[in-house]
Amino acid sequence: MRKLCITLFILLFASSAYAGKMKVVSTYPYIASIVDHIGGDRVRVNALARGDFDPHTVIPKPSFISKLRKADVLIINGAQLEIGWLPPLLKQSNNPAVNPGSSGFLDLSTHVKLIDVPKSISREQGDIHPDGNPHYYLNPHNIPLLAKAISEKLSECDSRNSSYYKSNCRNFITMWNQKTSQWDSKLAALKGKQVIEYHKNYDYLLRYYSISLAGTIEPLPGIPPTSKHIESLEKMISSRNISFILMDVYNPDEAGRHLSKKYGITFVKLPHDIGAVPEANDIVSLFDEIVRRLTK
């Protein structure tokens, strides 16, 4: 019993050591990295999902509840990317500070223009996102919009450090714009090329750099490839000049590798978030690595 008391005391003490910092929880690691740049040492940020797993199907671990329970701010990707796992956790954590609509809640998708918003919605079309494609952060030109939204939210919730967050945000955007111009010049070489994706993860990037998407390995969003669909892809491939097959790190890659081998198309495994590949360990190196893999 005494041991238990001591353990509990230490745990309580350990958590109070962070008491001075604002506690931010983000759903995905890429958000946490931007928060790190802007919040610096005045916030403590925790990402829930792992960057190397499928962002659509995150296991709703009970340990996430304890993180949400203590959070001052919750920042989500939105556009229904978290619909399959976050709502029950939020309900169970019962923290009114971070419920949607409250001041400690930020949905980043409301700060960018979403593409592929479906005109009609039926699950006949697979597991579609009714608000549009939610993978908007994979275009580096969207990141400053997210940084600004995060800086504003942090300033709103912690007004004492408002100027600190704002100046960090300005510095981050300056640095980011320099990096982006490097990436722009490298990716310009890919203009007009045609690619195949597994899932529509990289459409924002493709569209910005005028790379055209010829097809997806999934017949419909969320549906694994069928032999019939692969056949139709093969027919399409033989009539076009496909430069890359883009693959995420979490879906089975047999179908992509098969097509790559059969038709001699370059197979590129791209990270979609921080931690997906060892080289991508923050928001900058994530894009460095995406660009490096695409222009290698």
């Binding site: 009970p62 340990s63 304890s66 019962n94």
Partner: peptide, 12 residues
Amino acid sequence: LTCVVPLDFYLM
């Protein structure tokens, strides 16, 4: 009535 205790692990 439930209570989630604010610890670093889940305790309800």
